[in-house]
Simulated scan of single mutants.
Amino acid sequence: MKKLQSTPDFHGLPRLQKLTIEGCYELEEIHPSFGSHTSLEYLKVSYCTKLRMFPTIVHMRNLKTLKINGCNLKDGEIPSGIGELSNLKELDLSDNDFSLLDISISQLTCLKVLKLSLCDNLIELPDLPSRLVILNASYCKSLTTIGNFHRNCKWLSHVSLNETTIQNDGERLLQSMLEGNAIENGSMLFLFPGLEIPMGFTPPLLRGSRYTFQLPENWRDDFSGFLICAVSNYILISTDILKISVKQVSSDVSYEDDVVWEESDGDRITVVWYVSFGLLRNVAWLVQTYKALSFELAEYECSGFGVTLVAKKNRSGLTETSTINSYDYTRVIKIEHDKASDAIMISSSV
């Protein structure tokens, strides 16, 4: 099938629900009859690098997952009608050659996941739908600004923008995410180039991958969760899973050997986690009376590491309080209790 140049007529498959076309390097055209399939729910066209004729998909109203990645599609070659797919939940256009997305992504009111990584020519992000949870635009080397794409995205909780050339927008985007709906019972993961966030982190990051955090009085009442920040290089974020262990420690631990992080030549990426107290409510020892916790990034080294608390937000300040939980689509961060070490394990997939 790798030498397939054109697909057959699809009229004989009226109930087709799932289709994957992958690694057909000679494929140039998908038959126009394909555009009339209203029952299709999953479509993946991957690494068909000569594909230039893609039928409109405007009639695929039941489509929930659309993946067209690694096809070298240029401006104007993205199939028309994507903005009309009212039930679409996941859109993957990674590893293509377009510079602008001239489709109305903001109209996709059910979209939860948008993947645009490895689009080397992409120069800006479009307005995004309000219920988006995951955005991956890593390795978009021409991406220099994020604009205000996130202003209505109150469910946004996993953003990857590493290996882009974006400057000075990290703090603004992080604060916007912390004002969203994940603040009370959710979690967040944020990967961003540069050192804007760690330079302003309070209290400051410390050298290494371990941090002992002194808990203020009434911390469970006045704050909503932990914000954890690590500074490292490409080696750290190239791994599949990152794990942070959290343990209780004595409040009289000595800090004489702690060294404050300072920028170094190897620092390339900032990783930020947010974990709400709501996700930790079943941890028996995490109670108001404890005075200090130790956080450690397991197995991997980083040059700087730190923890702070995020103040509670006034519920009236949240613009969206729908009972529909967008986080049910995917778990950004996994919380486990390691009984052997009596530690909380915070795991995130990158």
Rank of each mutant, 00 (worst) to 15 (best):
L205D: 09
S33N: 06
E171T: 15
E26H: 15
S39I: 04
G225K: 02
V272F: 05
R172F: 07
S232P: 02
S250F: 06
N325Y: 04
E22R: 10
K334P: 00
L143M: 08
Y42C: 02
R151T: 09
Y290T: 15
V272A: 02
K3Q: 08
G194F: 07
L318M: 09
D265C: 02
L279Q: 04
G180A: 15
I244H: 00
D102K: 15
S238F: 04
E217K: 12
V272C: 06
E29P: 11
L13S: 11
A284R: 14
C48D: 07
V253C: 00
D75C: 09
W273G: 05
P198Y: 07
G194V: 03
R210C: 04
R15A: 10
S326D: 12
M1C: 08
G180D: 15
L13T: 10
E184S: 00
H337G: 07
D240Y: 15
L215I: 10
L297P: 00
F305T: 07
I333F: 02
T20K: 15
S46I: 12
V310M: 06
I57V: 01
S209E: 05
S157R: 02
H337S: 11
D221C: 07
G23V: 11
G186L: 00
R207L: 03
T289M: 08
I335N: 03
A230H: 04
R207P: 01
K141C: 11
N314G: 01
Q5A: 09
V272E: 05
N121C: 15
S250H: 05
Y234L: 07
S104N: 01
N136M: 05
N72M: 15
Q248H: 05
P204R: 03
C48R: 06
R52Y: 11
Q288T: 03
D267R: 12
S209K: 13
L205G: 07
Y327V: 01
N185E: 14
W285E: 13
I166M: 14
R151M: 12
G170V: 01
N87I: 00
C110Y: 03
Q248M: 05
R131L: 15
V246N: 06
S39M: 12
V259P: 02
V246P: 08
S106K: 11
P129G: 08
E299G: 07
D102S: 12
E263L: 04
A230P: 01
S106G: 05
H337E: 12
L286T: 02
T144K: 14
D265L: 04
E336N: 09
L100E: 15
